[in-house]
Design a protein around this nucleic acid. Structure first.
Lengths: 193, 193
DNA sequence: CCCTAATAGTCTGAAACGGACGGTGCTGAA
DNA sequence: TTCAGCACCGTCCGTTTCAGACTATTAGGG
């Protein structure tokens, strides 16, 4: 039983770059940067400067081929090589055993809610609920666009999953906001704090 | 309108440390490390070596007070100062405007699903579903424990939110797995993918 | 008294970060 | 025609984070 078929010298960012070029055809790093911002950034973040380093490195490894514009700005453009496609496929085919990671400053503050007044937490909940609503809306747009295309079932599934997860989190924040806002003091048996 | 009441020289990790010491009383860095692993790590990750650096720094700022064991290992122990409590409260009270960030290798592979066979994606979905199930179970335990205590409503809310989000994501993965596994070829009116 | 496991903490090289900064070429107003 | 302003495109570099290897220390069991 071989443990890993995918190349150990490639990082997730490498595959993002390979994958987007495979999807969109020959691309400049700047175009990749824009494409990342339009989707992948929502579940795998990294600084754009990485893209420039990564395209160069992948070209060195023979997984991308560089072409340079002859006119004007002489931008570099990269297309994927057969080796690049093979590396990408091998990686996708290998199941990911890592759990998803969440990183939320809002949750961190909620965790320590006891150190602030209920009003402050209500405000936090309001802000977070609104943020989640916006992101869900954005996700909806993406879903609509992907459905119109009918193509790319993987991307659609990702968007639907994320949309649902964000919706559920947003609902929690709304519930928290309501619970703290409406009954400033529940009256009657004043449960200690 | 003042923009920021909270100290700009403190990072989220600083507040994690302050918050846990505020909750648990005087603690050694190692104890904090353990406490982080029992909860906060699920929505705010950082390397444990940071804790040692951070306690020292916070002591230098006067937000923690260091005490050293006289016997045995002479471990450092830290308690929170009034200034530390004030800094913590100010930070918690200030709403977080950042959206939550998700980071999932599984979603990344799903996004590029077209580059692997359906069987590979089914396998990915199976692994991810199982991972999510485990995490949900773990979350349930935490919720039960927190409910038994009756205390700390913020922590309970966090656990419930995360549990729900993970459950929803896990259900998506299960659905994906079923969709790919059961009908290897949908037969009949082949809906053009 | 020694061995082992659990506890406790240190250290470091490598990535990642992120944002300031500097060109370049287009467009359209003067 | 010029050139100001802007959107595009890419580089660079100081800081922070990161992971985890590594080193003690101590309690407990044999």
């Amino acid at each position: 039983m071989v443990e890993s078929m995918s190349r150990p010298d490639l990082t997730p960012v490498s595959y993002v770059v390979l994958g987007l070029i495979a999807r969109d055809g020959p691309s400049t790093p700047y175009a990749i940067k824009a494409a990342v911002g339009r989707g992948i950034a929502h579940f795998w973040q990294f600084p754009h400067s990485q893209i420039y380093a990564e395209t160069e490195r992948l070209a060195g490894l023979g997984l991308l081929a560089e072409e340079r514009e002859h006119t004007g700005r002489r931008r570099r453009s990269y297309r994927i090589t057969p080796e690049g496609r093979a590396a990408l496929s091998a990686w996708v085919a290998e199941p990911a055993a890592e759990p998803p990671q969440l990183r939320s400053l809002g949750l961190l503050k909620l965790f320590f809610a006891q150190h602030a007044g209920p009003g402050d937490i209500a405000e936090l909940a309001k802000v977070q609920a609104e943020l989640h609503r916006q992101t869900v809306d954005y996700t909806r747009e993406i879903i609509a666009r992907l459905k119109a295309r009918g193509d790319l079932p993987g991307q659609l599934a990702v968007a639907e999953l994320m949309g649902d997860a964000l919706r559920v989190m947003g609902e929690h924040w709304e519930r928290i906001g309501r619970a703290l806002a409406e009954p400033p003091a529940p009256a009657g048996a004043a449960r200690g704090r």
